[in-house]
Write a protein that binds this DNA or RNA. Structure first.
Lengths: 141, 141
DNA sequence: GGAGTCACTTCATATCTTGAAGTTACCCCC
DNA sequence: GGGGGTAACTTCAAGATATGAAGTGACTCC
């Protein structure tokens, strides 16, 4: 992870940081408001503690979370998503929607206010309209 | 990948299938219209051939691509995304948007018709309106 | 003062990834 | 018809990474 790649594709660059089995599950938990090591270890089922500790360091290094100590003796930290980290919510949302549609699950992505299930759609801020999926392309600028 | 997990979180389930460094880059290329082993090997820079062969088999097993032989002697296959596979476009789009915003790249996600950069937004199909990111939650159904 | 918790680290083993090389069955060209 | 090239893989050894179990230090609670 986070190694050099000669391509400058934003998809590849993002996957260099979060493209493994665990990192986005940690982000998912942080988005849910979990902040402490032990809380995350509990709900990211099966994550080895060494990997969790590793990923939190990586997320900090990448500016996705900040570590804040609420006690120094003994050292007790909590992890808060930065704006950059919150922006990953859309990636987690997209993974969730795909999983909901093509598997059987107990959880779903909803609007907290109206309670309805959510979709993710492309939106052109210039034309102020929705774009169909078929029109989305990744192209050279 | 694709192993059992006790949680039934759709994010975790999706990452069980596509949560590694390479799989979504292969999907990205298939979305772009590349279909052959050699075409994909070229643009997913650095992918070992054994990994590509492995991931294509996995994607086939998961119903994300279908393998079609255009020659049987010698066997020459091409890989076509199913509807399930095309639906992963939103995940790739979300990764691209995040990468564009937080890194320097030559590529960007645009609307093929108007040419403007695209965003991804949450949409409630019931209320027929956009939901702000802050209202999106993953909850028990 | 003993048990428990939190936030990790360490370590041996197991598994996966990587890169290089090999394989099979063609096609093209002279 | 022999040599070179290509497509789509497979195999293999070495190296990197992940896993699970156990350990650590500095507390707090009873």
């Amino acid at each position: 992870m986070a190694q050099n790649r000669t391509v400058r594709c934003p998809v590849a660059a993002t996957l260099d940081i979060v493209g493994d089995r665990w990192t986005l599950l940690v982000v998912r938990d942080l988005l849910r408001g979990r902040r402490r090591y032990s809380e995350i270890a509990e709900t990211v089922e099966g994550i080895p503690s060494s990997v969790l500790s590793d990923r939190l360091k990586l997320l900090e290094r990448e500016g996705i979370v900040v570590r804040r100590y609420y006690t120094h003796h003994p050292p007790r930290a909590e992890y808060i998503l930065t704006q950059k980290g919150h922006a990953l919510g859309v990636v987690v949302g997209a993974l969730s929607r795909w999983g909901e549609r093509y598997g059987e699950h107990d959880l779903a992505l909803v609007d907290h206010e109206c309670g309805h299930g959510l979709d993710l759609v492309y939106h052109c801020p210039t034309c102020q309209r929705t774009s169909p999926r078929s029109r989305a392309r990744i192209v050279r600028q």
